[in-house]
Every structure is written in C-alpha cells, then in structure tokens.
C-alpha cells in the first residue's frame, strides 16, 4: 500500500540576507514526508537541516514555493493562522527542551492540550498516562523544570509535543544536550511513540539517533543529496547500522 504523504513541498526556497549577501539555504526543494514515518534529516553543520524542518512545520516562512501540510498550503497562512494550525497538527521537541520554567511539569503538558479545547478531565488522564509511559512518575508532576534532570525534562517535552496527537512531531536534535543514558531514554520514547503510529520528523547529526528513523534524508547544498530507507527500527540490528553508515559515507559524511 503506497504511503500517504502528510507534508509535500513544491519548489520550496528559503534564503537569508546577511550583510547584503543572499544565502540560499533551501533551493527549489520538491519532497514529501509520509504519515507514520520516523523521518530523519541529516547533514553537515550549517547545511540548513533545521531551517528545512522549521520551514516544513510552518514555524519559519518560506521565501518561495509551497508547503502542503495536511492538504493545506501553509505558506499562505498568517502568523496567527499558523499558530492555530500548529496546535492540532504539530508537536515540537527542542534541543534545549524549552519547558516553561514558571510552570510545573503537569501544567507544561496541559497548557498545550488545553489550547485545543480538549475536555480537561480526559486531557488530564491522557497527560498522566503519557507521563507514566515515558517514565516521568507522579512525584515529578508538580515539580518545576529546574528541578528535573535533562533527560526527565526532555521526556516531558516529548509528552507535551504528543499530547494533542499531532499529525507530525518535529524534533530538533532532541538528544543534543543530553548525556548518553538520557539520550537513549529519550530516543526509546520517540521510537515507542512512532511505533504507536505517531509521525516524527527529526533533525540530528548524531548517527546513533539517526538509526532510530526508518527514512533518512541527507540534506546538502540546499537540496536533498540522497535518501536511505532503513526500514523499521530493531534494536541491535547490525545490518541496519552498516547500511546507514555506508549511506552517510556515500554522502560525504
């Protein structure tokens, strides 16, 4: 059965002007991101992979071209329309976590949920269940972000991103600021969530993290340099690891 496209770009361009010099970060990009996939965007530092991810999510505006997200051209949206769109369709996981430091763990999660007008009782149950699922126990729910470890905070960030069951979770180097064991825990959560059907688009420059994806896009010179289909993640699958390594090597990684 062919995969259903959830994000599709048409001649997507993104450029910046620095000191009067134009930098074309994304050049006439035509691509699709599919429902249920764990898509990973990789690339060299400064290649523009994060720029691509935020252009696809509507967080950043495209300079030219179109982005069709859930069958809507989001490049025509105003800032407020994009914000309202993000509530139901997007979830974000940031490298620096960005939990609201004045709010408790539970409030951070519920704020995102309440924005969509969900029933508070049901939302509360779902938040509790998700938090338990990612290993953030009840005793932490009333804590503030500065009382959590980095790993705990990022897992809360993931729950916040998926609380509204968005069409796509965008994860920007979610393990970039974490130690190894915390990284594994966070990646396990993302993998588990993906297995439950959640589409994920993750940007990373870490091979270990990239291995969790089933589709790897290598972004290079403002366009897609190559793609690699790894298939579903299986822990300890050596062949998968080698395939990714070879692909990256071909891409000049």
């Amino acid at each position: 059965m062919p995969k259903k496209s959830i994000i599709r770009t048409e001649k997507l361009c993104k450029s910046f002007s620095t000191g009067g010099v134009q930098h074309h970060v994304i050049k006439n990009l035509d691509t699709e991101i599919y429902e249920g996939d764990f898509t990973v965007i990789m690339g060299a530092s400064g290649a523009g992979k994060s720029t691509l991810m935020y252009a696809l999510s509507g967080m950043d505006k495209a300079s030219l071209g179109k982005v069709h997200f859930a069958d809507r051209d989001i490049t025509k949206f105003t800032s407020d329309q994009l914000a309202i769109f993000r509530r139901k369709h997007c979830g974000f996981v940031f490298q620096q976590v960005y939990l609201m430091d004045s709010m408790s763990v539970m409030d951070n999660v519920l704020t995102a949920g309440l924005l969509t007008g969900q029933n508070k009782r049901e939302l509360n149950k779902r938040a509790q269940s998700l938090l338990e699922q990612v290993g953030v126990g009840r005793k932490l729910w009333n804590k503030f972000p500065n009382q959590l470890s980095g790993g705990e905070a990022q897992r809360v960030g993931i729950v916040r991103a998926i609380i509204n069951s968005p069409d796509m979770v965008f994860a920007d180097e979610p393990t970039g600021a974490l130690n190894s064991s915390s990284s594994d825990a966070v990646l396990n959560v993302l993998t588990e969530v993906n297995k439950q059907g959640q589409s994920i688009l993750m940007v990373t420059h870490d091979m270990k993290s990239a291995r969790r994806g089933n589709r790897i896009i290598y972004f290079k010179d403002g366009t897609i340099g190559g793609e690699c289909d790894l298939g579903p993640y299986v822990s300890g699958d050596r062949a998968r690891h080698d395939k990714l390594r070879n692909f990256l090597s071909d891409m000049g990684w």
Partner: peptide, 11 residues
C-alpha cells in the same frame, strides 16, 4: 516564543 510554538496566537 515557547508558547507561540505550542500554538498560542500573539493576541
């Protein structure tokens, strides 16, 4: 900024 990423409008 965080709230905007969650879908809060400026208004």
């Amino acid at each position: 900024g965080i709230k905007k990423s969650l879908g809060f409008t400026s208004s």
